[in-house]
Nucleic acid binder design. Structure first.
Lengths: 166, 166
DNA sequence: TCTTGTCTTCAAGCGCGGTTGAAGATGTAC
DNA sequence: GTACATCTTCAACCGCGCTTGAAGACAAGA
């Protein structure tokens, strides 16, 4: 044991299933050395990367985005303070955005919905500025498009999804 | 026009694609009357339900959960203050939880990760209490299981997903 | 009347993030 | 040397939240 972990050991340490680890590798998020027999061997630093993936997912990033972030970090050593500093600033911003939105929604629970105005036309929360009908897609406007990625509670389909109505 | 909307009109008003509206109907979230020819006709109140769905998705509920919530509300009239009061209390709690988690994660950006301890074993944020390895599943522990549903950034698979490692 | 647009159903497909299972190689403990 | 656990790849499948497309009915204006 050169400080190298088998996939099972890494799974045990990180709490991430082996199938997920292989999946992450396929997606380029982590990498493994191989034994002669073709078995994966993970340097310890990989555990940090896996932890990073889990953390980032929890924050609300997609695996693709996480891959992009990971590409900025060294694969084989802990990141420097500076490297982390850059990264965490971006993340912090995204988290703040999402929190702000949740607070806005929470406010809507009493102010807008509570007052019965969930009738849509007048509702500033559900219908921010009446740009709605003109804009095309639709739910994307409130749901995802404005903030592509964060929480990705619904970046939904794939293409533009330009709805059905002309 | 009895105050009844066609599916296209409802789509235009709500910003939700007709395909999604049919999908919601299939899932029991909304209902439509039918013309002789079988075309859908929506009472105006349905627009409120659709708005509700969008709002709730944004908060982070699944369609199934939203169906449950909608079942508690009248289909044909605006909800009373009391009805809204009950509902919004539960929601507020969920939003608060999610915000709290995001704040915790944000804190981790500097306190835990920033200090380099993303080495997993000592990390209080990634590894809340070391119950991790014992508990079975794994990522579910941090990711979804604790808070089944909210934000559902990852309630992931279906069953228990008891990983691969014994 | 004819054309164009909107509606219907039904089946299939997509992106995401994996899991499951089969078939086989390898490693380890007794 | 023989079990039995762990590993490999590969293909298929899952749940979620829809979208897309085909094939056909219906509606409204010129």
């Amino acid at each position: 044991m050169d400080g190298l972990l088998t996939i099972g050991e890494l799974a045990a340490r990180t709490g991430v299933a082996t199938s997920a680890l292989r999946f992450y590798e396929e997606r380029g998020l982590i990498r493994a050395e191989r034994t002669e027999a073709g078995h994966r061997r993970y340097p310890r630093a990989v555990a940090r990367r896996v932890a990073f993936v889990v953390f980032a997912q929890r924050v609300g990033l997609t695996l693709e985005e996480i891959g992009g972030e990971l590409a900025k970090l060294p694969a084989d050593r802990p990141p420097t303070r500076q490297e982390w500093g850059r990264l965490s600033r971006t993340w912090r911003a995204r988290i703040d955005e999402r929190i702000a939105e949740l607070e806005r929604l929470r406010g809507g629970l009493t102010e807008c919905i509570g007052c019965g105005c969930l009738s849509l036309d007048r509702c500033a929360i559900l219908n921010p500025g009446d740009r709605l009908a003109e804009n095309g897609p639709g739910p994307r406007l409130w749901l995802g498009d404005a903030r592509p990625g964060l929480d990705r509670a619904k970046t939904g389909g794939q293409g533009d999804a330009a709805a059905e109505r002309t």
